Computed example of a mutant assay.
Amino acid sequence: MGLRDLKAFNLAMLAKQGWRLLQNQGSLVFKCLKARYFPRCNFLETVDSLNSSFIWKSIIAAQPVLKNGCYWRVGDGTSVRLMSDSWIPNHPTKKILVHPVEEKWEWRVSELMDPELREADWAESSRGHSGTKVWAKLWKLKNKIIHGGKLQAPTQLNKQASDLLAEFQQAQEQLTIVHRTSTESRWCPPPNSKFKLNFDAAIFLDLKCSGIGAIICNENGEVMGAISTKGPQVQDSTEAKVLACRRALEFSIDIGFFELVIEGDSAQVLNSLMSSDTNLSWLGHIIVDIQCLVAGLHWAEVKLVKRDANCVAHSLARYAKIIVDDVFWLEDSPPPALEALYFDSLQFQ
């Protein structure tokens, strides 16, 4: 009859208030509630008290809703506790599975990162050989601090920061990124000496996975590279296409193409990519990854097109359903998309 589940609806509204306490920490309401109910922890860690107000008891009742859906966006990792915080995306528990024997040292995710090489050993699972390497590195870092090891002097860190800032500003001056929305329903070649990257995704509910397809062509419509690969199980088409966009850019950079027209048919994904606002959605960390990849290109133009102008990438994404390993084509037309390629060549010629 269309009747709402009033209990679930009420919890959703209360959880929204809890989310505001996590995001708007400069508000007067947050400062008052924090001083009264959770002065030494955050909202997700606090527990209810016997003498709390009815308003606070109502908000805290929705805390499990946020705990089930929230996890940290790592950043520099200095605020994220390695063991107890939820920080691993696309993982059932969002936490480290196997803990070390000794847990007296409160490790942070930042301790997995090498500040000089800018490398991170992302421990999605702490088991096996890679897990041993992670714990060995953590143990070494702990001993370095406890037993009198030398840390980098602040002056040296400041010099490194200044050099990196100068390098970043110089790169931004050289980079030209054009944002454009197109209503074209047919594929068009890129400008001379540039390349066009088309990407798309498909969802295979029966296999509990997704498919990713991408193709790079030159100004003559000739294929420079293409990929068809399976992706993880996703919740919706937006997640699938965000992952496809990131994988397509990684593929382009790996085979040496840095001047790209990037085309897709998802308005939501490309608008998020072109936005300068902080993306607070649950896919925001992947959007940031894509923006970093685009910023590393020598020249880039982002275009939104209709599905008819993205048929080749769509064919490759659908082809991923019947493959086991990733399939690549370099300077060769992919057989699963020959018909779509032929149709595109007739259109722009």
Rank of each mutant, 00 (worst) to 15 (best):
I253A: 06
L33H: 05
S185K: 15
I216Y: 08
M83A: 07
G149V: 02
C188I: 12
C311M: 14
W135K: 02
F199K: 08
I286S: 14
R118V: 01
S272C: 05
I286G: 00
S79Q: 07
A340G: 12
E339Y: 13
G213V: 07
A337F: 10
V234R: 03
I203D: 07
K137R: 13
T183A: 13
D200Y: 01
L283W: 00
S162H: 12
Q291S: 03
K142Q: 10
E103M: 11
W56P: 08
V134A: 07
I322R: 12
I290E: 01
A214C: 09
F168R: 01
S193V: 10
H314F: 13
H129I: 04
E219K: 13
L151D: 11
D344N: 09
V80M: 04
I55L: 14
S185F: 11
F168E: 09
S333A: 14
D344L: 07
P190S: 04
R186P: 10
K159L: 15
L346R: 15
R36Y: 00
T183R: 12
R20T: 06
T176I: 11
E239R: 03
Y71P: 05
S52K: 01
D265H: 01
T181C: 12
G128T: 02
L14M: 10
V98T: 00
G284A: 11
P89A: 02
Q63P: 06
V178N: 00
I96D: 05
A61H: 01
M13S: 12
E45Y: 04
E239M: 00
I55A: 14
P154F: 06
P190H: 07
I323T: 05
E111R: 07
S182N: 07
S228W: 04
A340W: 12
V80Y: 03
L11N: 10
V327I: 08
L141G: 15
K208M: 13
L205F: 13
E173C: 15
A244M: 04
K150A: 15
D114W: 01
A244G: 04
D277P: 15
V269A: 03
A61F: 02
A214K: 11
P64R: 03
L260H: 06
L249P: 03
T132Q: 11
I59L: 11
V223I: 08
E259C: 09
V312I: 09
R108H: 09
L280I: 14
D332C: 14
A313E: 01
A12H: 00
L297Y: 00
A161I: 08
F43A: 02
K306W: 12
G77S: 00
S110A: 08
T229C: 15
E263S: 00
